[in-house]
């Protein structure tokens, strides 16, 4: 019985890995088309979920012009308008990628975990080549 369970777990793992590989190999950089209030809310929630953050200020046309979505701290400035931290080293923005994977729009957090979140209320199409 134990051996059978182990074999099932291994088989499931292989299937999962294969699934990941398949979906990755089918990934096509994508942009959102015809964003709606629902798709914007879905995108906002997906970003917050990935970053474990509160509300993130997004443009209404986020991911409609580019398949990349960099998220950063809101730049803060002093009374002279100069950035408080004008010499940023050692870190980069959090970057999300939108891909079309088969017929699905998937938001990928471009981090070590490569968290993939399907966006079911969003329409997307392959991004134009830059």
């Amino acid at each position: 019985m134990k051996a059978a369970v182990s074999r099932m777990i291994i088989a499931a793992g292989v299937i999962l890995l294969a699934g990941c590989a398949t979906s990755s190999s089918r990934d096509v950089p994508a942009v959102i088309v015809n964003p709606t209030p629902q798709s914007r809310a879905e995108l906002s929630l997906a970003v917050q979920r990935a970053l474990h953050s509160g509300p993130v200020l997004l443009a209404d046309d986020a991911l409609t012009q580019s398949s990349l979505l960099p998220i950063d701290r809101i730049p803060r400035r002093d009374s002279h308008g100069r950035l408080l931290n004008g010499l940023e080293i050692g870190r980069k923005p959090e970057v999300f990628r939108l891909v079309q994977s088969g017929s699905r729009c998937v938001l990928i957090h471009d981090d070590v975990d490569q968290l993939r979140q399907p966006l079911t209320a969003t329409r997307c199409q392959p991004a134009p080549r830059s």
């Binding site: 200020l57 998220i71 950063d72 809101i74």
Partner: peptide
């Protein structure tokens, strides 16, 4: 040499997106 409230400093936005008039 200065300080800033952490709750404000850590707020996030899409890069290049802010709230304003579009003028400086």
């Amino acid at each position: 040499h200065f300080t800033y409230p952490t709750s404000t400093w850590e707020q996030l936005s899409q890069s290049g997106v802010s709230v304003g008039y579009g003028a400086i």
